[in-house]
Every structure is written in structure tokens, then in C-alpha cells.
Write a protein that binds this DNA or RNA. Structure first.
Lengths: 117, 117
DNA sequence: TGCATAGTTAATCATGTACTTAAGTGTATC
DNA sequence: GATACACTTAAGTACATGATTAACTATGCA
């Protein structure tokens, strides 16, 4: 059962770990097997598998097993939900700053530093 | 001492908690005091303060105390680093898919499903 | 001065996370 | 059929996280 939407909690949590980000970076260059993902990481294979589970639970990565090798790949939809959430908050803040700038520009120039409309 | 760059670890970790995201959403609409941030959250003030420390350590939020009230605001640079990291990985993957599509379009149409060049 | 307000610190506690090792399950290859 | 390969599961452990309550420190105001 895969979480295509990717709840923000799980997605941010998944990306908070540097090893998992290394895995995502590797996968952004193309699909990879579990052992390929493990190669650059200084940890046991079971540990890598646990990280993979976290990434799959978040919806960032999907995988399928053919024969004895499991091939993993990125699910861009999950990454898009993060991008969107972050960019909405940031641009909300930045547009607010613009509006505040406009407001202050219209006011007489006194003691406005740090004040809010 | 504030982390303006915002290490990816700390930033993703900070955003992984729903209460902290509520705080960021509130701040994206403008600066707020600690108790304003606390109002919609069902937890004690010390707990909110701990979340605020996490957000500040990540560089997402800054604050300054004037009189007895501490005013918090968003630091958009930290949010931009997240946006950038995620969008780079995603677009790397998506452009790779484009190139793969081009490659397959040039190949004879047989048993290419799921294969990599 | 006295008392409420806004925030802060410290100590504590229950879970959750990121590993580990040891042992087990299918697949390929000889 | 035997043996190696590529995971997979289970169990255990050390440390981090998210909350709590109790007690404390300014600041502002009547």
C-alpha cells in the first residue's frame, strides 16, 4: 500500500535524514537496486532497508521486485507537494513584505521601523 | 547565534512536525508573539517555546524580544534552500525521464518496458 | 508598591528513531 | 543439487524527540 499523496509529516520526516537524502539524490539520477543505494552509505543493509521503508511510506520512492533484485525509483508527485507547501509559505511571506513596503511608502516617514500596519 | 543558511537536516527536521508547520503558516501571514503562536496549539507554553527553538536553530524563524514580548518572523532564505534542494532532485528525475522517452522513441518497439538505456 | 502579563528554565518521562547482529527466504548459476 | 547472491525479518539497544509540571524572571501598569 503506497502513499502517493505523501502526507507532509512523512515526507519532511523522510527527507530530514542525510542518508535518506543521499538515497534520493542517487535515485534522482535514475532507478537503482537496494545494494546500489547502500553502496555509498556506511551502514548495514538492514539499516538501508529501513530507510527505504521510510521513503516508501512517505510516497517519495516506489520499488518493485523482479527476480531477486528490488528496483527503486523516485515518485515526483511527493516531492512536488513539499515544493508547493514551502513555496506557498515563502511567497505568502514575501508578498506580505511587498504590501507592507507599499504601505510604508505611503505613510509619513516617522518611527515606522519594525511596525506592522 | 543563528543559522541563516539552514542545514538541510535541521530545516527538514523542523518542518516534519505538524505543530511547527502551523507556527510557520501563522508566521507566513506576518510576525507574531510567542503566545500568538501558541494560541491555536493544544499544548503548554514551554512546549511551544521548544518548537520555536527548533525553528530558530534551523534558520527558518528569527525572533527578537522587545520589552516582555518576543516577536517572531520568517526567514525566507531557509525556506528557499529547501525549495531548491527538492526542486533540483525532482527536475533531475523528470528531465531524465524526458531523455529516456526520447531514447525509447528512437528504438524499435520491443520489450523496452521498464528497461534503462 | 503590588500584581498581572509574557516569557523562560529545569527536571522528568514516554515514545520514536537509527542503528546493530543473527538468522531466514527466494533466485540465479554452476 | 550445491552454493552464492540479493534481499528480508526479528530482536535488541542507545540516543533523540515531544510533551509535561513546577518554579522563576523580567516588564508593564494601576
Amino acid at each position: 500500500m503506497i502513499n502517493y499523496a505523501g502526507s507532509l509529516d512523512l515526507v519532511f520526516q523522510a527527507l530530514a535524514d542525510p542518508s535518506r537524502r543521499v538515497m534520493v539524490e542517487r535515485l534522482s539520477r535514475g532507478p537503482a537496486s537496494v545494494s546500489e543505494l547502500a553502496r555509498p552509505l556506511a551502514m548495514s543493509l538492514p539499516a538501508v532497508l529501513q530507510h527505504l521503508h521510510v521513503l516508501e511510506a512517505s510516497g517519495i520512492v516506489t520499488s518493485e521486485k523482479v527476480g531477486r533484485v528490488r528496483t527503486c525509483r523516485i515518485e515526483p508527485a511527493a516531492l512536488r507537494t513539499v515544493e508547493q507547501w514551502v513555496s506557498e509559505r515563502r511567497s505568502s511571506w514575501e508578498h506580505r513584505l511587498d504590501r507592507l513596503g507599499d504601505y510604508l511608502a505611503e505613510q509619513p516617514d516617522e518611527a515606522n521601523y519594525g511596525r506592522e500596519p
